[in-house]
């Protein structure tokens, strides 16, 4: 796996880029599935958060993998996402995660499920990055103002 850039996440993948834009996701249409049984989140200090900046003023998006030391290739994993306004959690109407491999022209082969842990705090299960290459994890944040898409780009 290539190291493309340095992130706060102390693992071997690189967080290339975080973009925010109000465009529709190109990946397959996901269905809403019943939330998974939510397992306890890890202790707050055990895993550091990655920062992702939204175009929405003052909005900050944080994410981290919670069941692996690093983002695994071709092995399902779970992650947490926090959405803040300033330093305070902010509520959304909904959060979805889509995936896309721009060089391959395909997305996820399974649809992750999202469950709400707290205000602005989400758990995403069943994330599977089944191939090596560049992945875009597209967090879709829905609130009263519409859709905000935050793209986390990973190189596996």
């Amino acid at each position: 796996m290539r190291h493309v850039s340095v992130s706060s996440f102390l693992v071997r993948f690189g967080v290339l880029l975080v973009l925010a834009a109000g465009f529709a996701c190109q990946s397959d249409v996901a269905k809403q599935v019943p939330p998974a049984p939510v397992e306890p989140a890890p202790a707050e200090e055990t895993v550091s958060w990655n920062e992702a900046t939204s175009d929405v003023p003052a909005r900050k998006v944080q994410w981290r993998v919670i069941d692996h030391d690093e983002v695994p290739r071709n092995e399902a994993f779970s992650m947490e996402v926090r959405v803040l306004s300033g330093e305070s959690p902010t509520s959304l109407q909904r959060l979805d995660l889509k995936g896309w491999m721009p060089d391959h022209g395909h997305g996820f082969v399974q649809d992750p499920s999202v469950s709400t842990l707290d205000i602005g705090h989400y758990r995403v299960d069943g994330v599977l990055l089944h191939m090596r290459g560049t992945w875009e994890l597209r967090l879709q944040l829905f609130d009263a103002n519409g859709l905000d898409v935050v793209v986390i780009e990973l190189e596996l």
């Binding site: 397959d28 249409v29 996901a30 269905k31 599935v33 019943p34 997305g107 996820f108 082969v109 399974q110 649809d111 992750p112 499920s113 299960d125 069943g126």
Partner: peptide
């Protein structure tokens, strides 16, 4: 099975 999409 729940998260395996039908239409992809």
């Amino acid at each position: 099975l729940q998260i395996t999409p039908r239409g992809w």
